[in-house]
Amino acid sequence: MSKNIQQMVRLDRREALKAAGAGVLALGFATTAHATPEAAAEALSKATGGASATASDKVSISLPEIAENGATVPVGVVVDSPMTPDNYVKHIHVFAEGNPSPETISFHLTPTGKADVNTRIRLGKTQNVVVAAVMSDGSVLTGTKEVKVTIGGCGG
């Protein structure tokens, strides 16, 4: 290669490395947008067809008070319902107020069995988890529980 071509290649490589370094720095300083309680309320309204929700002790949420690993937080929901063809839980929706998207998971139920579901969800930070149970008569019962997500399991 001639000396001029080598200099061009070297400069191009340097410029590429500079650009890559700037990109890495930009990614390091970028923040992930999180939902707000208002966004979670809007998602709840959309999922329930705009029905008004009522806080109820019939909705029991099982969550750890402190989650050492936000990537896999166990959550259980039990709704006190007779689960008969005339009175049952049609849907259970789970929302996380501080995740990038508040919609976490939805369960669709039939009158047979129990209104008892368990799963694992990802939580990005300490936040409220809101559960909405849509009943067969169209009413919506809700429950809320806060879970503290530690950073690296060190209580941060």
Rank of each mutant, 00 (worst) to 15 (best):
V147I: 10
K114C: 07
A35N: 05
P37D: 11
D137R: 04
L63D: 00
E42L: 14
N128W: 02
R120S: 05
V94R: 01
K125M: 14
M83F: 10
V79Y: 13
L27M: 13
A41R: 02
R13N: 05
A53I: 10
K58P: 03
T142L: 10
V75Q: 02
T36H: 07
E97G: 05
T142E: 12
H108M: 12
E103R: 13
Q6T: 07
H34L: 06
N128F: 12
T32Y: 03
V134W: 00
V9L: 10
A67R: 00
A33R: 05
S60K: 15
S52W: 00
A71R: 10
I5K: 09
I61E: 12
G152C: 03
I61L: 12
V77L: 04
R13Y: 10
S56T: 14
K46C: 00
A53R: 05
E38G: 04
A96T: 06
D137S: 04
T110H: 06
A55G: 03
G152M: 02
G49A: 12
T72W: 09
S56Q: 14
S62T: 11
P37Q: 08
D12M: 11
G143P: 14
T142R: 06
A22E: 07
N87C: 09
T104E: 09
V9R: 06
C154A: 15
G76Q: 05
D80S: 15
D57Y: 07
P74M: 13
T54F: 06
T32H: 04
A47V: 01
T150A: 05
A30H: 06
N99T: 02
I105Q: 10
V117E: 06
K125L: 09
V24Q: 11
T104Y: 00
V130P: 02
V75I: 15
G155E: 01
E65A: 01
S52K: 10
L123K: 12
A133F: 08
A71V: 06
A19I: 13
A47I: 04
G143A: 12
L63S: 01
C154W: 14
G76M: 07
Y88S: 13
G113S: 01
P64K: 12
S62G: 11
D137C: 04
E97N: 11
S81Y: 10
V75L: 08
